[in-house]
Design a protein around this nucleic acid. Structure first.
Length: 475
RNA sequence: GGGCCAGUAGCUCAAUUGGCAGAGCGUUUGACUCUUAAUCAAAAUGUUGGGGGUUCGAUUCCUCCCUGGCCCA
């Protein structure tokens, strides 16, 4: 039907896809904001037709643009027979330019009385139901554009995401003097985290490459190269399943700061998050489901070991190998995969027993060296490393170390990791080790999962609600 | 990978024990010059996610598969 209308329009020489511009005098939000000042004045606005109420020789339309929605009133007298007929044949979803006088209806509704209208784009597909909207979750993700058309709050949420990321950059660059660098996504060796990589073929070289699983080892090379405050907000790929917490591609902030330790990084992390709360959220108190998170500094600081002892009844020092870790996990009734590595089992115990208690923003300090292959050892507690993670809403938001810069120890730790590895394509990144051999100054580093942070700040329980186009199977 | 749940018109949802597949929105036609989930009258709309099976008869029962959600690994 709509295609038939389109054909008629084209035959009439009014092809809606020929329009190349429409000069608006105001956005709809601007009209509404200064409504009284504009009363009686002529404006030109444009947007999508979201509703229509016909009354014979008069007609009401709701017109929506990016930030606002306004009622358009039209009748034969002011619009003329011909144009009125065109306006009435507009479908929901069509994009219209309207010129007219700003006025209030008898019921006081802010409106624009159309004196001219132009069909700027024809919509060939019907919009979702006007009252219930689009509730099929799969459709919302597969056709996010529809979700955005129909639900202004979703549009708001993703705009807020962009603002938060933008404020991160502003804070790091303008207030703290960091510089963003871009490093390769396509890597010959993958490292910097424990995860299954995506493998891709570089035809010209007839060789396999990896999509990066972390940015760490590249940015540290920049510290070796002499930069002192570097960061990158970039896409990471991990070849794993999809659930409410995971998407195979996601965004990470990583930063490295020379000549400081992890306590400076902790302060920076706290400042960064408070800055985001103040600049984007307008509050430091966040509603997340039925929980209330307070990002009022200082966030509490707790020893990893104390939490493990308190909630899992064990010190990692007493679990020196895979066998003892597995035995303790079984005792606690914590499940793990048969082939799980030592680190994975410790992580499982932590996730199951400790994480649920970490609701309010909490820095967890001093992790076992055994699960922190890139962090510097604490000399007087040699089984622990200078590492912290930030938790909130029972989710890990950030991970940071005083970076290991001893090339010999780094090599030994990486070799140990590979020996214990049960997953991932891990091989030594010889060039990274060589870089350390040239000498990396004492450095503090930080990684923040952007989606995790957004979930906590926006109170969204699913990662898919903070990603515009979450991965789904091909159709 | 395992468990549970869901898939019916473009969208949101019904359909008694297994007995003619329906409503609202949207669409089309007509009426209506201040409505706002406009109203009134009429009409069109389906491979009930897909394949197989049981049955006189399947949206409904069985089975396999596909897609998605939630929980667990």
């Amino acid at each position: 039907m709509r295609r038939w209308k389109l054909r008629r329009l084209k035959e009439d020489g009014r092809d809606p896809y020929h329009e190349v511009r429409y000069d608006r005098t105001h956005t709809i939000a601007e009209v509404l904001k200064d409504f009284d000042g504009l009363l009686g004045k002529q404006v030109r606005v444009a947007g999508r037709v979201m509703a229509r109420r016909e009354h014979g020789k008069a007609c009401f339309l709701d017109l929506a643009d990016q930030d606002g929605r306004v009622q358009v009133y039209a009748n034969v007298d002011t619009l003329g027979e011909e144009q009125f007929k065109h306006l009435k044949s507009a479908d929901l979803g069509d994009i219209l330019g309207v010129e007219g006088e700003v006025f209030r209806t008898r019921t006081g509704q802010e409106s624009v009385k159309a004196s001219a209208c132009t069909l700027l784009t024809k919509s060939l597909e019907p919009l979702p139901e006007k009252w219930h909207g689009l509730s099929d979750i799969e459709l919302r993700y597969r056709r996010r554009y529809l979700d955005l058309i129909v639900r202004p709050e979703v549009r708001e949420r993703f705009k807020l995401r962009s603002e938060i990321v933008s404020q991160m950059r502003r804070f790091l660059e303008d207030e703290r003097g960091f510089t963003e660098f871009e490093t390769p996504v396509l890597e010959p060796v993958c490292g910097g985290a424990t995860a299954e990589p995506f493998i891709t073929r570089w035809e010209a070289l007839d060789d396999d490459f990896y999509l990066r699983i972390a940015i760490e080892l590249r940015l540290k090379r920049l510290i070796v190269g002499g930069y002192e405050k570097v960061y990158e907000i970039g896409r990471i790929f991990r070849n794993e399943g999809v659930d409410t917490q995971h998407n195979p591609e996601f965004t990470m902030l990583e930063l490295y700061w020379a000549y400081v330790d992890y306590s400076d990084i902790m302060q920076l992390t706290e400042d960064l998050i408070v800055h985001i709360c103040d600049s984007c959220m307008g509050t430091r108190e966040i509603e997340a489901g039925d929980r209330r998170l307070s990002f009022e500094p200082p966030f509490s600081r707790v020893q990893f070991e104390d939490l493990m002892r308190e909630h899992a009844g064990v010190s990692v020092q007493d679990l020196p190998d895979r066998k003892s870790a597995a035995a303790h996990a079984k005792k606690l009734d914590v499940d793990f995969k048969k082939d799980a590595s030592y680190e994975k089992i410790i992580d499982r115990i932590w996730t199951a027993k400790v994480e649920p208690h970490l609701t309010q923003p909490t820095f967890v300090l001093d992790y076992p060296v055994a699960v922190s292959p890139l962090a510097k050892r604490i000399p007087d507690r040699p089984h622990l490393a200078y590492r912290f993670e930030l938790f909130a809403n029972s989710v890990e938001l950030a991970n940071a170390f005083s970076e290991l810069n001893d090339p010999l120890e780094q090599r030994a730790r990486m070799e140990e990791q590979i020996a214990r590895a049960t997953e991932g394509y891990r091989e030594l990144d010889e060039d990274f080790l060589r870089a350390l051999e040239y000498g990396m100054p004492p450095t503090g580093g930080l990684g923040v999962g952007i989606e995790r942070l957004l979930m906590a700040l926006l109170g969204e329980p699913s990662i898919r609600e903070v990603m515009l186009f979450p991965q789904l199977r091909k159709q």
